[in-house]
Simulated assay, not measured.
Amino acid sequence: MLGGGKSAPPGRKIMVVADPTQESAGALQYALSKAVFDNDELILFHVENPNWWRNTLTMFLKKPGLMNSGPASTSAGASATTSVEESFRRGDMEFLEEMKNACKICKPKIHVRIEKKAVVEGKDKATIILDQSKVLGIDILIIGQRKSLSTVLLGYRLHGASSRGIKPIDTAEYLIDNSNCTCVGVQKKGQNGGYLLNTKTHKNFWLLA
């Protein structure tokens, strides 16, 4: 189910591709509000590539209330949000810990952990994510998606060894098409505009926030 449900089985492994971008923040918001339930394990997976992420410092959460569906207070959510933004501005990797803290504020009963892999010769971001999802036995893979020039700069890959005559393929689309588990591409539409979701069987599925 795209939006999740109360009957979802416990103990699933859900992996969110974590980057310091609004797209990644939207994917995490979707996961916490619609896909993750108590007893699930949430894995924040980041592909380390300092050549590009330092130039994409963006706000993680503009409205803390979107993630304060649990018993935590609004002030605590605001504090976590501020810390995330500050880590982005410093240009360090603390945004992963701040994402983890925000998850625990919103869903205190779930287990959250961080996984990181560095880019290696001969492997692109999509392949690394795909391989790690298999190694960890992921049930649901969630990745932020944006149809714009930024995906060309940040998330596109070449399907094949040579770029000559080959059209770039979006990382999210590649994962959706090739993941053994369910992969959801998430586009967040404003603060209260809902989510546009893409999976292998559902294209441009609209889900209210």
Rank of each mutant, 00 (worst) to 15 (best):
L2D: 10
L2Q: 09
G3I: 15
G3E: 15
G3M: 14
G5D: 14
A8Y: 05
G11K: 09
G11V: 09
R12S: 07
I14V: 10
M15Y: 00
A18G: 09
P20A: 15
E23K: 07
G26F: 01
A27H: 04
Q29L: 15
Y30R: 04
Y30W: 10
A31P: 00
L32R: 00
K34H: 13
F37P: 00
D38W: 02
N39R: 11
N39S: 11
D40R: 02
I43N: 00
F45L: 12
F45R: 01
H46R: 05
H46G: 06
H46Y: 10
V47K: 01
P50I: 06
W52L: 14
R54P: 01
T56P: 01
L57I: 12
L57H: 06
T58M: 08
T58A: 08
M59P: 03
F60H: 09
L61V: 07
K62D: 15
K62V: 12
K63M: 09
P64I: 06
P64K: 12
G65H: 02
L66C: 05
G70V: 02
A72I: 07
A72S: 15
S73F: 14
T74E: 12
S75V: 10
A76C: 08
A76D: 11
G77L: 14
A80L: 07
T82W: 12
T82L: 14
V84M: 13
E86L: 14
E86W: 12
S87Q: 06
S87R: 06
R89W: 12
D92W: 04
D92Y: 05
M93N: 00
M93D: 00
E94Q: 09
F95E: 10
L96S: 02
E97I: 02
E97F: 01
K100W: 05
K100G: 03
K104T: 03
C106G: 09
C106P: 01
C106S: 13
K107F: 09
K109F: 06
K109H: 11
H111G: 10
V112L: 04
V112K: 00
E115C: 06
K117Q: 11
K117P: 00
A118D: 13
V119H: 04
V120N: 11
V120F: 11
E121N: 12
T127F: 15
I129M: 08
I129D: 04
L130M: 05
L130C: 01
Q132W: 09
S133A: 15
K134S: 05
L136M: 09
D139Q: 04
I143N: 03
G144C: 02
T151G: 08
V152L: 11
L154D: 10
G155F: 02
Y156K: 05
R157F: 02
R157A: 07
L158K: 13
L158M: 13
L158R: 12
H159V: 13
H159W: 13
G160F: 01
R164H: 11
P168H: 07
D170V: 00
D170G: 02
E173W: 00
Y174H: 06
L175C: 04
N178M: 11
N178S: 10
N178A: 09
C181R: 03
C181H: 03
V184F: 06
G185P: 02
V186P: 03
N192F: 06
G193Q: 12
G193R: 07
G194C: 09
L197C: 05
N198V: 04
T199M: 08
K200F: 03
T201A: 14
H202T: 10
L207T: 03
